[in-house]
């Protein structure tokens, strides 16, 4: 597990270094995701020399993702600091957030499905539960 965590953190570190070094508008962890993707595609070869890694990377990563909601709590509690602005523009902001989120969800999902059909990239059993 430690070796898997090291790989994940190393990917994040590489992401931060590249994003910061090149001044890209991408957060380091998102670039780190790309690095881990590259690592995973090479894993077949790496796993033969470090068998432990092949087994634990999936469980470590999925362990982190299983409680993704938890990780948003500390930043979200920050709402207590700006209750003044929310009180002043509360109704307008609430309408803007709710309507905009609604419209964005509908527009995105409809665009995806329509283009998917037009480009012939629909998947065979889309409704299948995994």
């Amino acid at each position: 597990m430690i070796i898997s965590l090291t790989v994940i953190l190393l990917c994040q570190l590489l992401g931060e270094v590249v994003a910061g070094g090149l001044g890209w508008p991408m957060p380091g962890p998102v670039l780190g995701m790309l690095f881990l993707l590259v690592f995973l595609s090479l894993r077949g070869r790496i796993a033969t020399s470090v068998p432990e890694l092949g087994k634990t990377l999936d469980s470590t990563g999925k362990g982190l993702l299983a409680h993704l909601s938890l990780l948003f709590i500390p930043a979200s509690v920050g709402v207590v600091q700006r209750l003044d602005v929310l009180a002043e523009y509360g109704i307008g902001l609430a309408v803007a957030l709710v309507v905009s989120t609604f419209v964005t969800l509908v527009v995105t999902v409809v665009t995806f499905v329509v283009v998917s059909r037009l480009s012939g990239s629909s998947i065979e059993t889309p409704e299948q539960e995994r």
Partner: peptide
């Protein structure tokens, strides 16, 4: 949050 974002590569892969 950072490592979890990186770990999104696993289901993606």
């Amino acid at each position: 949050l950072g490592p979890a974002t990186v770990a999104l590569a696993i289901p993606l892969y």
